[in-house]
Simulated assay, not measured.
Amino acid sequence: MHIMVIGASKGLGRALVEGVGTAGDTVVGVSRQRPHSVQSENGATVTWVEADMSHPVAAADALAAAAPHAIDVLIYNVGIWEAKAFSEDYNFLEDSDDSIQQLVGVNITATLLVLKRLLPHVLRSDKAQVILTGSTSALRQSGRPEVAFGSSKFALNGMADSLREGFRNQGLKVSVLQLGYLNTEDTLSVPVSEAAARDEGHTVPVHDVVSVVRTMLSLSDASFMREVLLPARYDERF
Score class of each variant (00 low, 15 high):
residue 123 L to W: 10
residue 132 L to S: 09
residue 74 L to P: 00
residue 148 A to E: 04
residue 93 L to C: 10
residue 92 F to K: 00
residue 116 K to M: 06
residue 106 V to S: 11
residue 85 A to Y: 01
residue 181 Y to N: 08
residue 70 A to E: 13
residue 88 E to G: 09
residue 152 S to P: 08
residue 101 Q to P: 01
residue 109 T to N: 12
residue 161 D to P: 00
residue 160 A to V: 08
residue 161 D to W: 05
residue 147 V to Q: 04
residue 155 A to S: 10
residue 107 N to E: 09
residue 96 S to N: 10
residue 152 S to T: 15
residue 112 L to N: 12
residue 150 G to V: 00
residue 71 I to D: 03
residue 77 N to I: 01
residue 91 N to H: 11
residue 171 G to T: 05
residue 169 N to F: 06
residue 98 D to V: 15
residue 152 S to A: 12
residue 80 I to Y: 00
residue 175 S to K: 05
residue 147 V to L: 13
residue 93 L to S: 14
residue 168 R to N: 07
residue 67 A to F: 08
residue 87 S to N: 08
residue 84 K to V: 00
residue 86 F to A: 10
residue 134 G to Q: 04
residue 72 D to H: 10
residue 79 G to I: 01
residue 116 K to F: 03
residue 141 Q to A: 13
residue 74 L to W: 01
residue 151 S to M: 13
residue 119 L to N: 07
residue 168 R to P: 00
residue 116 K to D: 15
residue 175 S to A: 13
residue 135 S to A: 13
residue 117 R to W: 02
residue 92 F to V: 00
residue 107 N to H: 07
residue 73 V to M: 01
residue 109 T to M: 11
residue 140 R to G: 12
residue 178 Q to H: 15
residue 133 T to A: 11
residue 130 V to R: 06
residue 67 A to D: 09
residue 75 I to L: 15
residue 78 V to L: 04
residue 176 V to N: 02
residue 104 V to H: 08
residue 166 G to W: 02
residue 144 R to Y: 15
residue 78 V to N: 03
residue 161 D to N: 13
residue 110 A to V: 10
residue 68 P to T: 06
residue 138 A to I: 08
residue 173 K to G: 05
residue 163 L to Y: 09
residue 122 V to I: 11
residue 77 N to L: 04
residue 138 A to Q: 12
residue 82 E to P: 06
residue 78 V to E: 04
residue 134 G to K: 04
residue 113 L to Q: 14
residue 173 K to A: 14
residue 174 V to T: 12
residue 99 S to V: 01
residue 178 Q to C: 13
residue 159 M to T: 15
residue 153 K to L: 05
residue 67 A to I: 07
residue 152 S to R: 03
residue 111 T to K: 11
residue 168 R to H: 12
residue 82 E to G: 06
residue 124 R to W: 08
residue 84 K to G: 00
residue 167 F to P: 05
residue 67 A to N: 07
residue 89 D to V: 00
residue 157 N to S: 11
residue 184 T to K: 04
residue 100 I to V: 15
residue 115 L to W: 10
residue 101 Q to M: 11
residue 155 A to H: 04
residue 119 L to H: 11
residue 110 A to F: 09
residue 73 V to E: 02
residue 68 P to Y: 01
residue 122 V to R: 03
residue 161 D to F: 05
residue 65 A to N: 06
residue 117 R to F: 00
residue 130 V to L: 06
residue 102 Q to I: 03
residue 71 I to T: 05
residue 99 S to R: 04
residue 176 V to R: 02
residue 159 M to N: 08
residue 160 A to Y: 02
residue 65 A to M: 07
residue 117 R to P: 01
residue 110 A to W: 09
